[in-house]
Simulated scan of single mutants.
Amino acid sequence: MPYTYIVQCVDSTYYTGWTTNLETRLAAHNSGSGARYTRGRLPVALVYYEYYATESLARKREYAIKRLSRKTKEEMVKAFTNKQE
């Protein structure tokens, strides 16, 4: 299942990516074998995700999220967190 996700790094920055397995990808980030950006900002925590029907749609959404402002990302994360509670 393709997902677009946001993790929050220990320095409070966000990293956006896509994957077909959230658990495995989060473990890779936290083990230091994930994205170069997150390697020096461990640990990371999953704060947002969306499911998509195809990998192509997940990658397109990743690109769109990366272009958003930090404030918009913070609002997305807050709304997502409230929805999960």
Results as ranks from 00 to 15, higher is better:
Met1Leu: 06
Met1Val: 07
Pro2Asn: 04
Thr4Ala: 11
Tyr5Arg: 02
Ile6Phe: 02
Gln8Asp: 00
Gln8Lys: 14
Val10Asp: 14
Asp11Trp: 08
Ser12Lys: 14
Thr13Val: 00
Thr13Phe: 04
Tyr14Val: 00
Tyr15Met: 04
Tyr15Ser: 08
Tyr15Pro: 06
Thr16Trp: 01
Thr16His: 01
Gly17Gln: 04
Trp18Glu: 09
Trp18His: 11
Thr20Ala: 05
Thr20Pro: 01
Asn21Ile: 01
Leu22Trp: 06
Glu23Tyr: 04
Arg25Leu: 06
Leu26Lys: 05
Ala28Met: 12
Ser31Arg: 15
Ser31Cys: 11
Ser33Phe: 09
Ala35Ile: 03
Arg36Lys: 14
Arg36Leu: 11
Tyr37Phe: 15
Thr38Lys: 08
Thr38Glu: 09
Arg39Thr: 10
Arg41Ile: 10
Val44Phe: 07
Leu46Ser: 05
Val47Asn: 08
Val47Arg: 14
Val47Trp: 05
Tyr49His: 15
Glu50Thr: 05
Glu50Cys: 02
Tyr51Phe: 07
Tyr51Gly: 02
Thr54Cys: 02
Ser56Asn: 13
Ser56Val: 10
Leu57Val: 06
Leu57Arg: 13
Ala58Cys: 07
Arg59Trp: 05
Arg59His: 09
Arg59Val: 09
Lys60Cys: 02
Glu62Met: 01
Glu62His: 00
Tyr63Gln: 11
Tyr63Arg: 14
Ala64Asp: 12
Ala64Val: 10
Ile65Phe: 09
Lys66Asp: 07
Arg67Leu: 13
Leu68Gln: 13
Arg70Cys: 01
Arg70Lys: 14
Arg70Ala: 02
Lys71Gly: 10
Lys71Tyr: 12
Thr72His: 10
Thr72Ala: 12
Glu74Trp: 01
Glu75Phe: 00
Met76Tyr: 15
Met76Gln: 10
Val77Ile: 15
Ala79Cys: 07
Asn82Thr: 06
Lys83Gly: 00
Gln84Met: 14
Gln84Lys: 15
Glu85Leu: 12
